[in-house]
C-alpha cells in the first residue's frame, strides 16, 4: 500500500475529530444561545430556523447544549486518557525493562483490574467520591491504566531485543535512560493509535456515567445527561433523544475511524519490526 495515499477512513475520521475538538473549544467561548436562561414557556419545541435542533425540556437551545456537551466529552475523555497513559506507560516500560517479579506483579495486577466489571466499579467509585466530572475522569482513567500498561509492555519487550537497543546497552546506558530515549519513541505510533481508541471509549463511558447521573452535574451539559433527560420524554418529544445520541455516535465513529486509519498507516512499519 502506498504510504502517500490517505485512506478514506482516515480522512473522514480526522475530519470528524477536528470538528469535534473545534466545537468543544468553541463552546468555551461561544454558544448560539445562553443556556443559563431557562424558558419554560417554549420547552420541547421542534427544530426551527432560530433553533436548528429545537429546545429542550427547560426551553434551552439544544444545539448550544450539544456544543457544550462536546466540551465536556472532550475534557473528560482527554484527561482520562492522559491519566491512563501517564500511569500505564511508565508501568509498562518498567515491567519490560525489569522483567521478573515486577513484570509479573504489573501483569497480575492488570489481570485483576481487567476482571472487574468496569461500569459497576465506576459506579461504586462515584458512590465513594460523589458524582461529578472530575470523579468520572478518575473512574474512567483507572481502567485506562492497565490497557496502556499491557500495550506498552508488550511492544517494549519486542523493542528490547532490537539491535539498536542492544547497542545502547553496550554503551552503558541504564535501563531507565534506554526506556526513555530508545523504547518510548518506538512506541509512539502504537500509543497514539491506542490513545485515540481509548479516547472514543472514554466518550461512551462518560455518556454512560452521565446517563445514570454520575457524570457532569448540572448546569454543565453532558450528552449522557441529555439522553437521560430525553428518555422520560420519548413519548412526548422523541427528537430530544435523537440529537445527543447522534452526537455520541458521530464522535465515537470519527475517533474510531481516525484510530483505525492511523493504525493502518503505521502498520506496515510495525509488521517489519515484528
Amino acid at each position: 500500500m502506498s504510504r502517500a495515499r490517505l485512506s478514506p477512513a482516515l480522512v473522514v475520521g480526522a475530519a470528524i475529530s477536528v470538528v469535534f475538538v473545534a466545537s468543544a473549544l468553541l463552546s468555551l467561548v461561544w454558544t448560539p444561545y445562553d443556556v443559563a436562561a431557562f424558558d419554560i414557556g417554549h420547552r420541547l419545541e421542534g427544530p426551527t430556523a432560530a433553533h436548528w435542533l429545537g429546545r429542550d425540556h427547560f426551553g434551552r437551545d439544544v444545539a448550544s447544549m450539544i456544543l457544550l456537551g462536546a466540551g465536556n466529552a472532550l475534557a473528560v475523555s482527554l484527561v482520562a486518557v492522559l491519566l491512563g497513559a501517564g500511569l500505564g506507560v511508565p508501568l509498562g516500560l518498567l515491567a519490560a525493562a525489569r522483567r521478573g517479579l515486577i513484570d509479573e506483579l504489573v501483569m497480575r495486577a492488570s489481570d485483576v483490574a481487567f476482571a472487574f466489571p468496569a461500569l459497576i466499579l465506576a459506579i461504586l467509585l462515584t458512590a465513594v467520591l460523589g458524582p461529578g466530572a472530575i470523579n468520572a475522569v478518575v473512574a474512567i482513567g483507572i481502567f485506562n491504566v492497565p490497557v496502556f500498561a499491557r500495550l506498552t509492555r508488550g511492544a517494549a519487550l519486542s523493542l528490547w531485543t532490537r539491535d539498536y537497543v542492544l547497542a545502547a546497552r553496550m554503551t552503558g546506558k541504564g535501563a531507565a535512560r534506554i526506556s526513555l530515549e530508545h523504547i518510548l519513541p518506538g512506541l509512539a505510533s502504537v500509543l497514539i493509535v491506542q490513545a485515540t481508541l481509548q479516547f472514543s471509549l472514554g466518550v461512551i463511558a462518560e455518556a454512560g456515567l452521565s446517563y445514570v447521573g454520575l457524570g457532569a452535574q448540572p448546569p454543565a451539559a453532558s450528552w449522557g445527561k441529555m439522553l437521560a433527560d430525553a428518555q422520560t420524554l420519548v413519548s412526548v418529544a422523541p427528537l430530544q433523544a435523537i440529537f445527543p445520541g447522534l452526537a455520541i455516535v458521530v464522535t465515537v465513529l470519527g475517533l474510531n475511524l481516525l484510530g483505525d486509519g492511523l493504525r493502518d498507516r503505521f502498520d506496515p512499519r510495525l509488521d517489519e519490526e515484528r
Binding site: L227, Q231, V234, A241, T251, V252, L253, N256, D260
Partner: peptide
C-alpha cells in the same frame, strides 16, 4: 460495523423501545 461499534447500547435500547414497543 464502525457505526455499530460507536452506538452506545443504552441509546440503542431507547430507540428500540421507541420503535418496537411504543
Amino acid at each position: 460495523t464502525q457505526v455499530g461499534v460507536a452506538i452506545p447500547n443504552f441509546w440503542f435500547a431507547v430507540l428500540l423501545v421507541m420503535v418496537f414497543s411504543i
